[in-house]
C-alpha cells in the first residue's frame, strides 16, 4: 500500500497507519509527511480544552453532529494522558463519540501524551496534518483535562474553545490564570446546573479585563461566552456559529495563514530541539554527570562544561 497516495484519496487504513508511524517516530512517518505536506494547510483546527470533568468529549461529540449537519467532514484527535511510569495509557474519549463511528466523513483518533506536558501529545500536530491531507474540513483536538497553564493547544489550533462548568468558584480560579487569556470561544457546559449565572458573570468580567488590557491590539475579536448542555445537544449550533465566525475573522485578517505558518515554524524548532538534545546526550561525558551526582560540581558549571565539549 502506498500510504501517502492512499491517504490523500481518503483511505482510512492509510491515514490510521500514517498517524501511527508518526506517533511511534517510525522513519516511514516522516517520508509520508514529506509527500502529503503540500496538501495541508486547509483545515480549520479547533482546540477543545478545559479542566477535567468539564465534558470535553461530550461537547466534541455534539459538535461533530452539528458540523456534519452543515456538511463538514470532521477529523478528531482525542488526547488522554500516558502513564509516566509504564508509558501505557487508557484512551477512552471515543466512547462518547461512538455514534459517529460508522460515518465515513468522520475520523476519530485517540492519542496518548507519551511524555509530553502541556495538555497535548507530541504527535498531535502530526495527526492534524494527516487528517488535513485526508481532506477533513474541520479538525477537533480535544486536550487532556488541563489546569492553569497547559495551553499548548493555542499554538496548534486556529480557534481555541475553553470549556468550563458552573457551580464551583474554585473552578473559575483554576482556569483563570492561563486559559482565560487564550480562549477564542468560551463555553459553560452543564449549564442546567446550579451556579450557571454566577459563573457566566465571572467569565464575562475576566474577559472584560482581558479586553481592556489589550486595547492597543488592531485585531479585535470579542470571545463570546456561550451556554451549553452538550449531553442534550443544547447550545451547540451557537458554538459552531462562533467557531465558524472566528475562522472567518481570521481569514479576513490574513491571520488564518499566519497562524498555520507559525505552527509549522514552531514544530520545526521543536523537532530541532529534540534532535539536538539527542545528539548532545550521545556525546555527553558520563563522568561529568557522575560528578554532579556526587555533588563535586554544580549543575550550571557541569552544563557549561558539557556544552563546551560538544
Amino acid at each position: 500500500m502506498d500510504v501517502a497516495k492512499e491517504l490523500l484519496g481518503g483511505n482510512m487504513l492509510a491515514g490510521g497507519r500514517a498517524i501511527r508511524w508518526l506517533d511511534d517516530r517510525d522513519p516511514r512517518g516522516a517520508e509520508v509527511l514529506a509527500s502529503v505536506f503540500p496538501h495541508t494547510g486547509r483545515a480549520h483546527i479547533i482546540g477543545i480544552t478545559g479542566p477535567p470533568g468539564a465534558g470535553k468529549s461530550t461537547l466534541a461529540n455534539a459538535m461533530i453532529s452539528q458540523l456534519r449537519s452543515r456538511g463538514r467532514r470532521v477529523g478528531v484527535v482525542a488526547i488522554d494522558p500516558s502513564s509516566p511510569f509504564s508509558g501505557g495509557a487508557i484512551l477512552g474519549d471515543r466512547v462518547r463519540m461512538a455514534r459517529h463511528t460508522l460515518d465515513a466523513d468522520v475520523f476519530i483518533r485517540s492519542i496518548g501524551t507519551r511524555g509530553q506536558a502541556g495538555g497535548l501529545s507530541r504527535s498531535a500536530h502530526d495527526a492534524c496534518l494527516i487528517l488535513d491531507a485526508m481532506g477533513f474540513d474541520v479538525i477537533l483536538v480535544e486536550t487532556v483535562g488541563v489546569g492553569q497553564d497547559e495551553i499548548d493547544i493555542v499554538a496548534l489550533a486556529h480557534t481555541t474553545v475553553i470549556v468550563g462548568l458552573p457551580g464551583l468558584g474554585d473552578e473559575v480560579q483554576a482556569i483563570k490564570a492561563g486559559l482565560m487569556e487564550v480562549g477564542d470561544v468560551f463555553v459553560i457546559n452543564k449549564a442546567d446546573r446550579e451556579g450557571y449565572e454566577a459563573t457566566r458573570q465571572q467569565f464575562e468580567l475576566m474577559l472584560h479585563l482581558r479586553a481592556e488590557g489589550r486595547q492597543d491590539s488592531s485585531l479585535h475579536w470579542s470571545p463570546p461566552v456561550l451556554r451549553a448542555v452538550a449531553l442534550n445537544d443544547e447550545g451547540i449550533a451557537e458554538i459552531i456559529d462562533a467557531t465558524e465566525a472566528h475562522a472567518q475573522f481570521l481569514r479576513d485578517n490574513g491571520e488564518f495563514e499566519r497562524l498555520s505558518g507559525q505552527r509549522e515554524r514552531a514544530q520545526t524548532l521543536g523537532l530541532m530541539g529534540e534532535a539536538l538534545l539527542q545528539l548532545a546526550l550521545e556525546k555527553t561525558d558520563p563522568d561529568v554527570l557522575a560528578a554532579v551526582e556526587a555533588r563535586e560540581i554544580d549543575p550550571y558549571a557541569a552544563a557549561r562544561l558539557l556544552l563546551r565539549s560538544l
Binding site: S86, G87, L91, I108
Partner: peptide, 24 residues
C-alpha cells in the same frame, strides 16, 4: 506499558472494525 483504546458498549462488528482501523 500498552495503549488501550475503549470503544464503549453495544458495539456492532462494523463499529469495532472501523475503530480498529482509525486507531491503527
Amino acid at each position: 506499558g500498552m495503549e488501550v483504546i475503549f470503544t464503549g458498549l453495544k458495539q456492532t462488528p462494523a463499529m469495532v472494525a472501523t475503530a480498529a482501523i482509525q486507531e491503527d
